[in-house]
Amino acid sequence: MSFQYVPSLFRIPEVPNFTPPNGIWRGKGKDEGYFALNGEYAWGGNIIVRDPNFCYQLQVDGGYAMTPVFSDINGYVYWEGSGYVYYTQTYGWVYCNKFPGYEPFEDYEYNYEDKEYIWKGDEFYTFSRPPYGPDDEVKMEPRGSIHKSGKEKTLKAVWPRWVAKNGEFGVYEGKDGESGQRIKGLPRFKGNGEYFVRSLNKEKGYYTYGRIHYAGGKWVIGEIGSAGGWHEGSEPKPDGSVNFKFTKPEGSEAEGSDISVSLDSYICGEETEAAFLGSAAIWR
């Protein structure tokens, strides 16, 4: 239920129309397997994705989307699913059912009797570039044995992701096949002009929220038994508000008012967690 920022280059082959971020937030605990990164403006900016969706998927004629594979094929990433989309040295971008790296074959003969070209070779499609963004579609031309007989296909980009509703830290909403909401950041509550930021981890089974803490079986602001009084309430929740009632020792003349605490926003916070950064030698 947290994210840890690893400031490092994102080592993947080139993805057309996408610049990998310089750092990535990696999910831990209940967020294990989720990654938060900057997906660029066209895709909504700050996003959360699941492995392996570190870039967009490709959809042919509105069918099942092909997922990216981050292995280098002629300098680029490739997509796999119902066929493959990859970069070739001969034709540039192709869509075919041959494993990436294969250079499709196309040839023709002229039939003098029918006075037409007869196309031969593999069945494949070529196109100039993958789509720029979610609203862009690219036409794919039939090539090889289907050069003349085949029909055009359309290529569309989709990216299953959660998009930030309001800034990097806060609620993210599902798009392109992902549903529901996800959270990135620490909830910050506010009451009587004072902010209460939730701690990253629980201590003895309870979070702290700035001056709001769990003590003596109660959620309190201040110290129970303090001569100047303290406030008693319940644990702050993102939904609704919590009233902290002013309380004082018997006989005390201290005066105070109740504090109503409710969610203000989500923030990054200033906490860090220990981790190791390592380098792996490559023997050749």
Binding site: M1, I183, R198, L200, E271, T272, A274, F276, L277
Partner: peptide
């Protein structure tokens, strides 16, 4: 591997 210990920025996520 050789590792170097460091304190990396961390923030909250989904509670449920």
């Amino acid at each position: 591997l050789i590792g170097h210990k460091c304190a990396l920025k961390a923030t909250g996520g989904n509670d449920t």
